[in-house]
Amino acid sequence: MAKKLSKILLYAIVTLGAITMLIPFLWMLSTSLKTAPETIKVPPIWIPKSLQWGNYIKAWSEAPFARYFVNSVVVTSVTTVGQLFTSILAAFAFARLKFFGKNLIFVIFLGTMMIPGEMLIIPNFVTLSKLGMIDHYAALIVPWLASFFTVFTLRQAFQSTPEQIYYAAKMDGATDWKYLWTVLVPMSKSTITAVTVLQVIGSWNAFMWPLIVTNTETMRTLPVGLQAFTTDAGTEYQLLMAASTFVIIPMVILYMFLQKYIIAGISKAGLKG
């Protein structure tokens, strides 16, 4: 009886959590289908009188979203692939190789994780502007090609694979490079998938940095593009929400397909997103 009761309680809490997470999304969907007056109506209405599908078409054509979309895809994919590559190499070095000062370097890198990202915005901006990268793809990509968070997570996963497999591979004639790509990476597939997805989502949703380093409209990414609906005359909520919906759809699809790996990878590596 007590067991049943605690199960009911557990489900109640989980359901409450799920609803809390879902409400903003539902509100976004509902608002995207309202007319302008409906969006600011008090008390708020959840279901619009007639569904304004036209909002989506209007939102898409109001700003060059196709261009933003391309920019986002380019920045996200290059950042993710590049970051994954450098992180896998670094994580392998920290997990398996023996070199002078390894622990010291690791601790210093770990220390960089304690620095709030906001503190780095100005120095990074100055550096990039001196390099002449502002308002180019480079500014959106280069600073994110290394991530110690990813390195750290992968290192944990690599270290959890048996060391004897490393020795076995070496005896079988695999170089460190071969071992890394043909044995260690496939063995750590779930963690790699998890960090990849986290990175894709982070990159796709990034707002502050792209806003700061891009000026021209053709260099903007989707989240920055959403600003188009906020003008001096106020915010067109129904269009903003319609645009937000098509911005997050690729991420939702991605997550649905890879959900299994993401959860396995995250719980295995003991990391938080």
Partner: peptide, 17 residues
């Protein structure tokens, strides 16, 4: 590698994938 020895480890160390 250069010694060309074949080794069997205690936990077998097979490639799981």
């Amino acid at each position: 590698l250069a010694r060309k020895v074949g080794m069997v480890f205690q936990n077998y160390a097979l490639y799981p994938h």
